[in-house]
């Protein structure tokens, strides 16, 4: 068993959490997989990071990860933003595992608010950091009531909310945290991923696990599971499209971030998935601003540090 054990900071148990906590989280994860989309309460522990910075996702990752895994951590699609870097360093220190930025090479991907552009494969585990696991919370503040609504499958309120969007704006205006039905039974928050990523949840060959640290809930979507974004027959679900291509790699398929360049309205659109964008550029694709000095000064790593103050 101890063949290739990595070196980690042995002041801590492997993966930081004590074994009893891991067992409790592991039991919750198995029940979460058995009832896709249902929020399993668990005894969330304090982590050496503030709530809202991924403590739920970290506890899930810590309970799942083993010495031979390769870990990737992304924040809004990027491998090099504050949250991703600090969580990656944390796991390097407490597990000693290999880390990667390449989606294809990762066994476990912990993510905040994006699903990678490269399709996932069987055996990979995508761990989402969840700020608010309850999709109905803004409509019904009482946990006792939302529990009942899930218990009885009573989701009319969410349809009314989407209908109000249509009545007011002419279309469903929700662009992220767009609610989904899992396996035809539970209404689930996909976490604040853009609705652009919602279709990737459906029938995904990978295992999707969700951890909410402050709210102490774990939920899951097994591979090959029905995940439907709520909609109406006459207002079907649609994902965002941009008139632009990525300014760096020229992709028209990926999710784009808008980066303001100056005070006079200059802006560029770049892939939010930094690994996807870098891979395309390495393969010779290039966008309108790829060779310009502006683009170099504002490579995705430099342009995206600022959004960290608005995390949930």
């Amino acid at each position: 068993m101890s063949a290739a054990r990595p070196a980690w900071d042995e002041a801590y148990n492997f993966a930081y959490l004590d074994e009893q906590t891991k067992r409790m989280i592991r039991r919750a994860l198995l029940k979460a997989l058995a009832v896709p989309g249902y929020q399993v309460p668990f005894g969330g522990r304090e982590m050496p990071l503030a709530y809202g910075w991924g403590t739920g996702g970290m506890q899930v990752t810590a309970s799942v990860i083993g010495p031979s895994d390769t870990l990737k951590v992304i924040d809004q699609g990027a491998d090099d933003t504050t949250n991703a870097v600090s969580i990656r360093r944390f796991f390097q220190r407490v597990t000693g595992v290999n880390t990667t930025e390449a989606t294809e090479q990762a066994d476990i991907i912990q993510t905040r608010h994006r699903i990678p552009e490269v399709p996932l494969r069987e055996g990979q585990i995508l761990v989402y950091q969840v700020p608010q696991p309850e999709p109905l919370r803004k409509l019904e503040p009482r946990e006792t009531e939302t529990r009942k609504m899930h218990g009885f499958g009573e989701y009319g309120l969410m349809h009314v909310r989407l209908y109000e969007d249509i009545a007011r704006f002419g279309h469903i205006a929700t662009t992220y945290s767009y609610p989904v039905m899992v396996n035809g039974r539970y209404l689930m928050s996909p976490t604040p991923i853009p609705k652009f990523d919602n279709p990737k949840m459906r029938n995904n060959p990978a295992i999707q696990l969700f951890g909410a640290g402050r709210e102490k809930r774990i939920y899951a979507i097994p591979p090959y599971t029905r995940v439907e974004s709520l909609d109406f027959e006459d207002h079907p679900f649609e994902v965002q499209r941009w008139p632009h291509a990525c300014a760096l790699c020229g992709s028209r398929e990926s999710y784009l971030d808008e980066v303001v360049l100056d005070d006079s309205g200059g802006r560029m659109f770049v892939c939010s998935d930094t690994h996807y964008c870098a891979t395309r550029r390495a393969a010779g694709h290039s966008g309108a601003m790829a060779e310009g000095s502006v683009a170099r000064a504002l490579a995705p790593s430099a342009g995206k540090q600022e959004d960290s103050h608005e995390r949930a």
């Binding site: 592991r26 799942v64 990860i65 097994p222």
Partner: peptide, 22 residues
């Protein structure tokens, strides 16, 4: 288990996969 931390972890991963890929 001779090595409880790591043997529990590999067993759990096998279980996680077993319940995920029924």
């Amino acid at each position: 288990f001779a090595d409880p931390v790591f043997e529990a972890q590999t067993t759990f991963r096998t279980l996680l996969n077993a319940l995920a890929y029924a």
